[in-house]
């Protein structure tokens, strides 16, 4: 059973098609790149997979479960349990310290409180000593690592990373990709990286190339 199984997926924004995927599947453990220019529907696909944006048509099976057949609360629970998300802009919760950000992820995923799991996740990204630091006191690189630790601390089956490297220089791009792959392997998760960053192509061989279906669509929203 593939981890991701997409059939007949179509979506349009303001009447313009942004996604048209007749069939696509990802086996568990096969990390995959989601490639395409701005406006090719990468983020829309990521949000559709994560149960955040209902597609116009099509079926998405995640670990055998039809995501959009679930009711809203069950879909939220499934997302918390199955998926870890790394955003381009990281989105750490500023009111909480680093450790609490990780505890928050576990709590929202419906997992029991586990200080050991939080400490291990931070240790693995080399931030074992920054448990009590507030996000505003972290460097950009440290924030990136906390965001990755937060995505893996729930032990997800799928890690979705939306443009994780596009704001980084070559050196950091390599480091973040290494870290993402290492952390995904560490928790047995499959990594799906949506990017238009050419530098990532060499690291992951499986890929889905998304063509740009129409021209006048807001790149960010698509």
């Amino acid at each position: 059973m593939p981890l991701i199984d997409v059939t007949g997926l179509r979506h349009a924004i303001a009447g313009r098609p942004v996604l048209d995927i007749p069939h696509w599947s990802v086996e568990a453990g096969r990390h995959c790149l989601l490639l395409g220019p701005s406006g090719s529907g990468k983020t829309t696909l990521i949000h559709a997979l994560a149960g955040l944006k209902r597609p116009d048509q099509g079926r998405i099976l995640l670990d055998g479960q039809a995501v959009w057949d679930l009711d809203a609360a069950a879909r939220d629970h499934a997302r918390g349990r199955l998926i870890g998300i790394v955003f381009q802009t990281l989105h750490l919760v500023a009111a909480l310290d680093v450790g609490q950000n990780l505890h928050l992820a576990r709590w929202l995923a419906g997992l029991p409180r586990d200080a050991g799991a939080v400490a291990r996740a931070l240790d693995r990204v080399g931030l074992g000593n920054r448990l009590a630091a507030k996000p505003e006191h972290l460097s950009q690189g440290e924030k990136q690592r906390v965001a990755i630790a937060r995505a893996v601390v729930t032990g997800p089956k799928l890690i979705l990373a939306d443009e994780p490297t596009s704001a980084l220089d070559d050196e950091n791009c390599g480091l973040v990709l290494d870290l993402l792959l290492e952390q995904a392997d560490g928790c047995g998760a499959t990594l799906l990286v949506a990017t238009h960053d050419e530098r990532t192509r060499a690291r992951i061989s499986d890929r889905l190339e998304l063509p740009k279906l129409s021209t006048a669509v807001d790149g960010h929203a698509a």
């Binding site: 939220d76 629970h77 918390g80 998300i85 955003f87 929202l108």
Partner: peptide, 16 residues
Amino acid sequence: RYDLAVMRALGATRTR
């Protein structure tokens, strides 16, 4: 708004 959206992405229900 972003914090709340991130919490939703992390698995929080709307009710929560």
